[in-house]
């Protein structure tokens, strides 16, 4: 069978990451299937965020951080190569952080900012459409349509996080990276984001770091378990949570001392 180059949104091979002399990721090889939600799980400090940040070169700004290995976008574009600029890369691979971080500006401006600087809209009405569409997809439009000019930081935590997702969507990414997006949210706001993630996977590939096993099992089709910088096991979420291949994975997800 011919390998389907296009079935993977991101392919990585032999990835190692050091902070100075300290190894944070140790020879990880993993591919992310398009339109799947993949959860990265593992004990705190095992390198999930470090690995996630490599995927859209967020680690570039950390001087001590040295990234090695292969990263291919859509099976062809070298993420760290000359053929793609970091700005273009981040257009394709968006990111949502642990703490909602809206700019201290209006709701509208928060979403409009990205498309503006990336030149995605040529007229004001086009920009309006993008903002509306993004807020809609993030499931926030109905709640904010009458107060688009209000300051974004006045929204609730859950709303702010959905705004950040709208902001990520507005630049039309193919892939969205999320680093513990619900850890600052209450259960209702969390459920709302999880529902959203489920809807978004129709159009985007999502890679999410989560410390919640039950969240990983609810929202993702694939799960990758990291331990001490190594990828221990990666597979279908249903398999990982019923019969993982590795003892270490079983111990971690069942809450046993490793």
């Amino acid at each position: 069978m011919v390998e389907q180059v296009n079935s993977f949104a991101i392919k990585t091979k032999n990835v190692s990451v050091h902070y100075g002399n300290k190894m944070a990721i140790d020879d990880v090889t993993i591919n992310f299937t398009k339109n799947d939600v993949t959860s990265l799980i593992g004990p705190s400090g095992c390198g999930k965020s470090t690995f996630l940040r490599c995927l859209n070169r967020m680690n570039d700004v950390i001087d001590s951080c040295k990234v090695q290995g292969e990263f291919l976008l859509n099976g062809v574009t070298d993420i760290y190569g000359d053929s793609i600029q970091v700005e273009t890369l981040r257009e394709k691979i968006g990111m949502v952080f642990q703490k909602p971080n809206p700019f201290p500006k209006s709701i509208f401006e928060n979403v409009a900012y990205g498309p503006k600087i990336h030149g995605l809209a040529s007229t004001q009405s086009e920009l309006n459409d993008i903002v509306m569409d993004s807020l809609n997809r993030a499931g926030l439009y109905e709640e904010v349509k009458d107060r688009m000019d209000d300051i974004a930081t006045g929204l609730s935590g859950g709303q702010q996080q959905r705004l950040c997702i709208a902001r990520a969507i507005a630049i039309r990414p193919e892939i969205i990276l999320m680093d513990e997006p619900c850890s600052a949210l209450d259960p209702i706001a969390t459920a709302r984001i999880e529902e959203l993630i489920n809807e978004l996977k129709e159009n985007y590939t999502i890679i999410i770091v989560t410390h919640s096993m039950s969240q990983a099992s609810r929202i993702s089709q694939r799960t990758a378990f990291f331990h001490l910088g190594k990828l221990i096991e990666h597979g279908d979420t249903s398999k990982i949570f019923t019969k993982p291949d590795k003892e270490q994975t079983n111990d971690y997800i069942t809450g046993r001392f490793g």
Binding site: M213, F241, T242, K243, P244, N250, I253, T254
Partner: peptide, 9 residues
């Protein structure tokens, strides 16, 4: 306790 994996089995 929402058991998973070996516990669920």
């Amino acid at each position: 306790h929402r058991p998973v994996a070996s516990d669920l089995r």
